[in-house]
Computed example of a mutant assay.
Amino acid sequence: MAFSVLLPVLLALVANAEPGSAYNLRPTIGILSQEPTDDILDLLEDKNYTSYIAASYVKYVEGSGARAVPILINQDDSYYEKMASSVNGIILPGGSVSITNSSAYGLAAQKVYEHVVKANKEGIILPLWGTCLGFEIITYLGANYENWLEGCLARNKADKLTLQIGFMDSRIFDQMPHYVIDYVSLWKTTVNFHDWCITPENFTKSGLIEDFKILATSFDYNDLEYVALIEHNEMPIFGSQFHPEKNPYEWANDKEHSAIPHDPFSVGVAHYFSNFFVNQARYNNQHFATKKEENEALIYNHDTTFTGELGSGFTECYFFR
């Protein structure tokens, strides 16, 4: 079943490759780290870590044929410029820190976003995807550093997507097989873990609607409608308030994470989103200056910690000093 779900998706993505394009078959995806919360550090004997990445994001891109590169926080401007000019795509993951530059993650995300926008304006295809907190940061940065989020109740909640008018006029849905569109619009294949959201009204008031399309919305436990999926009108910048990486790769077995859908349809939807994003990165042919530099940057140089057995909602994490 999983193969039958995945194969047509892959074929659809490859079929949409631009004829004659320099197609990168060794893409690297940069994943921004963030400072660990006290809840995570309390689980560890060694607390001398400055940042972490949930391993589900790494597996998410690896499962679609890419390699992962951690992008660390608390670095100087030249570091982020170098990373943005060496990798083929970037993910801003979810988390629990501030979206402003008052957090190290927020500040690093701002620098990364600015480099991504600059590259794309110069004609370099450099895709960016923000998930949950990363999505919220994109709305903040895209609205000229103004916060239009409001409180909502959508933690541990699986949902279908309410597709918006014109959703097919997008990169994401133009390449999505019709049966996958049915999965996301009719079944609860996406999962949410957030306390903040942006409503369609605020998305319009903020001016974001001038640069981004609202592709889908969802509803919180109080029936508040919020923006769930966006795409930039011109640049390959995407954001989901939901967590596609959790369906195949997060296995916390407690009531606080019980809503994560692991059925073949939800896993197939998750793989579509990862395949789509990695495919966008294949249009980028940037690389590190040397093979040695590339090897030293890859996530393979770091070990995972089985944080799930310690009581974390993340099954595995990478920790960095």
Rank of each mutant, 00 (worst) to 15 (best):
Ala228Ile: 00
Met1Asn: 12
Glu250Ala: 04
Asn88Met: 10
Thr162Cys: 08
Glu150Val: 13
Met235Val: 05
Ile40Gln: 12
Gln34Cys: 11
Glu81Ala: 12
Glu293Lys: 03
Met1His: 11
Lys59Cys: 08
Ser312Ala: 13
Tyr49Val: 06
Ala68Trp: 01
Glu245Tyr: 02
Phe3Gln: 14
Glu250Leu: 02
Ser312Tyr: 07
Gly30Gln: 05
Asn120Glu: 05
Arg67Cys: 13
Ala119Asp: 01
Asn16Leu: 05
Val269Glu: 04
Ser266Lys: 01
Ser206His: 08
Tyr52Cys: 08
Ser98His: 10
Asn88Leu: 10
Tyr318Lys: 05
Val5Phe: 13
Tyr80Ala: 01
His271Arg: 08
Tyr183Leu: 12
Ser64Thr: 09
Lys111Tyr: 03
Gln175Glu: 15
Lys205Met: 07
Gly142Ile: 03
Lys82His: 12
Gln34Ile: 02
Trp129Pro: 00
Asp39Pro: 01
Pro261Trp: 00
Gly20Leu: 04
Asp220Glu: 04
Ser266Arg: 02
Leu32Val: 05
Gly268Ile: 01
Leu92Phe: 13
Glu210Phe: 10
Tyr49Asp: 00
Lys59Ser: 15
Ile209Cys: 10
Leu72Pro: 00
Glu294Ala: 14
Cys152Pro: 00
Gln286Glu: 06
Phe277Pro: 00
Glu18Cys: 07
Phe265Gln: 14
His302Gln: 13
Asn48Lys: 15
Asn284Arg: 03
Val14His: 10
Asp182Ser: 14
Ser85Val: 04
Lys292His: 09
Gly268Ser: 10
His115Trp: 08
His243Asp: 14
Phe193Leu: 09
Lys292Trp: 08
Ser86Ala: 15
Ile53Glu: 03
Ile29Ser: 02
Asp76Cys: 02
Ala281Asp: 06
Ser218Trp: 01
Ser206Asp: 03
Thr217Met: 03
Phe238Thr: 00
Ala108Gln: 09
Ala154Val: 10
Ile31Asp: 02
Gly151Glu: 15
Tyr113Pro: 00
Asn233Gln: 14
Pro264Ile: 11
Asn192Lys: 03
Leu44His: 06
Ala22His: 07
Ile299Met: 13
Val61Gln: 02
Gly65Thr: 11
Phe135Tyr: 11
His287Tyr: 14
Leu298His: 09
Glu309His: 06
Val14Lys: 12
Asp39Leu: 06
Ala55Trp: 06
Glu114Asp: 13
Glu136Leu: 15
Tyr318Thr: 07
Val69Pro: 00
